[in-house]
Nucleic acid binder design. Structure first.
Lengths: 163, 163
DNA sequence: CTGAGTCGGTTCTGAAATCGAACTTAATTT
DNA sequence: AAATTAAGTTCGATTTCAGAACCGACTCAG
């Protein structure tokens, strides 16, 4: 399967991965959320080759996750900023960071801490139910066919016993 | 930068991506959460080549995300199951799916729906603060150096003005 | 007891992606 | 005039991936 075929799958995960399912892309997004905006700044921080960086920034821009904003005209220069669509990736990024904090931090502890401005506390992110507010656990979630389903390859195995 | 170097970075995101930062790995994990357990079942559902699948399952097992469990002896056969460490990736997987639901679903709507058993409602996942319970927004989160930090390449740009 | 099928892989070759380094273009600074 | 900055592009060498065939241990049907 190729990257552009991924986007056609009847699965929201596959479609999302067609945009962000690459390690450099996700590291670029991490830096975006940390306030990095310029080509050379990404390159210095990430250590990625310029060719790859150029390609990934173009893809993210075409996908509507980043937008190019000019900050001077002669010579033309611009910076990359997260769109609303890109800002919506915050839960993805923070969930990934949090798993690393819990399971990949060495004895020295986690490399960064997060503080919630509105309550003032250091916190961990928790994924919870929009309806009742309780934390979500995989055993307590049913996966059902939705209106946009075109095949049942991505339903749970327990829901496909008829075939 | 190579994959094994990623694991040494002073950044929880980079460390996590050294384990799951690959599109096939994440699709394998999606299927794990949907109840897929066996090599050929993964191969049928994903359309991945057997060589890649073999490699990724080995990596996930070595990383402690999956464990091999024998279900018969002659010939030796086993299945792959999520460990506790693997189950902790649920917020990552669900956040990715949810972003796809919001931003990549076509006119037909999302391919699958999620129902929370304990409250009975169809829901969206929300990332919230462990301390006050409010939804987290990137503008309201401060990133601070933690005890395990070994350099400041992964701090926000605003926290590095001294250098 | 032969032949097909199952399961969990490995091996092979050509195609594609990535790496590192150098080069380009337009403008400013020394 | 020469160096520097910013945002890329280009190029050859290396690495990874895709697609297909093959393998080994066993079971089952005839």
């Amino acid at each position: 399967m190729k990257w552009d075929e991924l986007a056609e799958e009847s699965c929201s995960m596959a479609r999302t991965l067609s945009v962000i399912g690459d390690r450099w892309t996700l590291l670029i997004l991490r830096d975006c959320f940390l306030g990095v905006r310029r080509f050379d700044a990404f390159q210095d921080r990430l250590g990625v080759t310029r060719g790859i960086l150029s390609d990934r920034l173009k893809q993210l821009t075409e996908a509507g996750v980043l937008k190019k904003i000019a900050y001077q005209d002669r010579p033309p220069r611009h910076e990359y900023k997260l769109t609303a669509k890109g800002l919506d990736l915050y839960p993805v990024v923070l969930s990934i960071v949090h798993w690393g904090d819990r399971h990949m931090a060495g004895d020295a502890g986690r490399p960064v801490l997060h503080r919630h401005q509105s309550c003032g506390h250091l916190f961990d992110p928790v994924l919870s139910c929009s309806e009742c507010g309780d934390p979500l656990r995989p055993q307590e979630v049913d996966v059902l066919p939705g209106p946009g389903r075109t095949d049942d390859r991505h339903l749970p195995v327990t829901a496909r016993r008829s075939g």
